[in-house]
């Protein structure tokens, strides 16, 4: 156990953006990421892009994970990426999850969202993606 703590865990801000109260999924993801050894900062419901980016900066997070089930992903996900640009924090990786139609995924990736996970994704799939993305921080 002791040697593990020498490695700095990857810190992930998880947030629900916009008017969307469906937080069951994001809580399951939070738990899975915790069990995979990540430090998850969960900020709760009804976040604006500004709030999410602010939290990520204060928390020195390397990753932002957004969850959306309201259909506003084409507006809110790119808004978070834009806000990161405005705050000169483009080193922070953004991924998203929720009910996102196939056609929108390519467009979102073009706008700077690193990866998107739709319903049916195994939790291990998210963990595997993070491990690949941050090999030095995983245990």
């Amino acid at each position: 156990m002791a040697t593990k703590t020498a490695i700095r865990p990857v810190r992930i801000v998880l947030a629900k953006v916009g008017l969307d109260g469906h937080d069951r999924g994001v809580k399951v993801v939070a738990r899975a990421l915790r069990d995979a050894g990540y430090e998850v900062i969960y900020t709760g419901l009804r976040q604006t892009p500004e709030m999410v980016v602010d939290a990520a900066l204060q928390e020195d997070a390397q990753v932002i994970g957004l969850s959306i089930h309201s259909g506003a992903h084409m507006t809110l996900f790119p808004a978070v990426v834009q806000e990161l640009k405005r705050r000169k924090a483009t080193d922070i990786v953004v991924f998203g999850g929720g009910i996102i139609p196939e056609d929108d995924i390519a467009a979102l990736k073009e706008k700077g969202v690193a990866e998107l996970f739709t319903p049916g994704t195994p939790l291990q799939g998210i963990v595997d993606w993070l491990r690949k993305r941050f090999p030095e921080g995983s245990r």
């Binding site: 593990k4 865990p9 430090e39 969960y42 709760g44 709030m51 602010d54």
Partner: peptide, 27 residues
């Protein structure tokens, strides 16, 4: 696993955009 869920910010959301309030979660 060394992982953690840090959820204290949730209760302090009304100060989220106040630049004079700095909140940092620590495991």
């Amino acid at each position: 696993t060394g992982g953690a869920i840090l959820g204290d910010r949730i209760r302090m959301q009304r100060h989220a955009l106040d630049p004079r309030v700095f909140i940092r979660s620590m495991g």
